[in-house]
C-alpha cells in the first residue's frame, strides 16, 4: 500500500476553476499572481456564439476562450513549463498521480463535475472541463483543492477515477498536469501587456461574425427570431442557457467581465497606465449591462417579465452591449499597443 501524504498546499477560493488552479499552483511554486491577473495574462476573455456547435441541443455561447487555453497562454507568457499527461489506463493514471504526489508536488487535473460527489447536486451536469488540484492522500481518500469551494475537501479513489475518466464533451482521459519550471522573478509587466493585447485584438478584430465583440450583435440577430423559429418553450430554454453560461458558478459574474475589470485595475498599477483604470470602470459598466440582461432574461424564463420585455427587446439590449464591447476593445487595442 502507498503511504499517506499531505503536500502543504495553500488553498484560496476563486470564482473560476481554471484561473483558480493557475493562481493556487503558482503560489505553491513561489509565484504570486491573483486570479484576475492569471485571467488577464492568460488572455482568457472572449465572446462567441456558435449556432453550429450544440450541447444538449442548445447552441454554445461562451464568454471566454477554450477550456485549458488560459493555462496554456499564461504559461507561455510567463515562461512556465508544464508537464501534461493523459492516459488510457485508469490504474496507470492513478499510479502516476501517486508518484507525483510522493515527490511532494500538487497535481492539477481535469474532471467531470457530474462525478464529483462533494459538489452540490444542482451543479452536477455532465460538464467535463472542471479543474481541481489534488494535494495528498490518506488511505483511499485523496485531498482536493477545488478552486470554487471555500475549503479543501476529499474524494474517494473510486470516485476520483470516475471523474478523471468521464466520457462526453470532451473525454477527460485522466488528464493531469503540474509545473516543472516556474521562473523566479518573471517579467509580469511584459506578460500582462501581452495578455492585454491578445484579448483586445481577438475581441476587436476576429473576422468571422460569431467571434469576438461582434458575436454579441450576431447572437442578438438570432435571438430576435427565437420565438418564431423555435416556439416559446424552446426559445425560453435557449434564453435560460444564456443566463447559465453568463452567470453560473465559474464566471465571477457577468460572463467574466467583472473579473476582467479586476485585471484591468491591477494592470493599471503594474504597467503604470492610469487609462487602464478608466477602462476598468468602463468594463464594470459593461458588466452591469450584462447583468441587467440576465436579470430581465430570468424574469422572462420565470414568466414574470415586465410588459415590454420580449425577445426583440432582449435582442436590443444585446445590440447595445455588443456596440459597447466593440468600442471598448478597439480602444483597448489602441491603449495596449
Amino acid at each position: 500500500m502507498t503511504k499517506d501524504i499531505t503536500v502543504p498546499f495553500d488553498h484560496q477560493q476563486s470564482a473560476h476553476c481554471e484561473t483558480g488552479v493557475i493562481s493556487n499552483l503558482m503560489r505553491f511554486h513561489g509565484l504570486r499572481v491573483s486570479e484576475p491577473m492569471a485571467f488577464g495574462i492568460g488572455s482568457g476573455l472572449f465572446y462567441s456564439h456558435m449556432p453550429f456547435l450544440k450541447l444538449n441541443g442548445i447552441p454554445v455561447t461562451t464568454y471566454r476562450i477554450l477550456p485549458g487555453h488560459i493555462f496554456k497562454r499564461f504559461s507561455r507568457n510567463i515562461g512556465v513549463e508544464m508537464k501534461r499527461m493523459s492516459f488510457r489506463d485508469q490504474d496507470e493514471a492513478m499510479r502516476e498521480l501517486d508518484r507525483v504526489l510522493d515527490q511532494g508536488l500538487p497535481v492539477g487535473m481535469l474532471t467531470s463535475v457530474f462525478y464529483l460527489p462533494y459538489l452540490p447536486k444542482a451543479f452536477r451536469f455532465h460538464f467535463n472541463a472542471h479543474n481541481i488540484v489534488v494535494f495528498g492522500r490518506k488511505g483511499d481518500e485523496y485531498l482536493v483543492s477545488d478552486p470554487v469551494m471555500d475549503e479543501t475537501t476529499t474524494i474517494h479513489r473510486t470516485a476520483l477515477i470516475r471523474a478523471r475518466f468521464a466520457k462526453g464533451t470532451p473525454d477527460t482521459k485522466g488528464r493531469m498536469y503540474y509545473p516543472t519550471v516556474v521562473p523566479t522573478g518573471p517579467d509580469l509587466k511584459k506578460a500582462a501587456a501581452k495578455g492585454l493585447r491578445r484579448v483586445a485584438r481577438d475581441m476587436a478584430t476576429t473576422p468571422l461574425p460569431m467571434f469576438g465583440a461582434k458575436g454579441i450583435p450576431y447572437l442578438a440577430g438570432r435571438l430576435r427570431k427565437y420565438e418564431t423559429k423555435l416556439g416559446n418553450r424552446r426559445a425560453l430554454l435557449f434564453l435560460g442557457n444564456l443566463i447559465r453560461m453568463q452567470e453560473e458558478i465559474g464566471t465571477g459574474g457577468a460572463g467574466f467581465r467583472f473579473m476582467y475589470a479586476a485585471f484591468l485595475q491591477e494592470a493599471a498599477a503594474l504597467l503604470e497606465k492610469p487609462e487602464l483604470r478608466e477602462k476598468a470602470k468602463e468594463m464594470t459598466r459593461i458588466g452591469d449591462l450584462w447583468r441587467e440582461f440576465a436579470f430581465e432574461a430570468g424574469r422572462m424564463v420565470k414568466g414574470r417579465a415586465e410588459a415590454g420585455s420580449t425577445f426583440a427587446s432582449m435582442a436590443d439590449k444585446l445590440d447595445v452591449i455588443g456596440k459597447a464591447e466593440q468600442m471598448f476593445f478597439k480602444d483597448l487595442m489602441r491603449i495596449s499597443k
Partner: peptide, 29 residues
C-alpha cells in the same frame, strides 16, 4: 455547503472577491 465567489468593487472602488449564495436569474435558469 459553501458560498461561491463573485468579483465586485468595494467602497474604495477596488475589486475584491465577495462570497455569494446565489442570484435569482441564475437560480431560475
Amino acid at each position: 455547503k459553501f458560498k461561491v465567489v463573485k468579483y465586485a468593487v468595494n467602497e474604495n472602488g477596488e475589486y475584491e472577491k465577495v462570497p455569494s449564495v446565489g442570484w435569482e436569474p441564475e437560480n431560475v435558469a
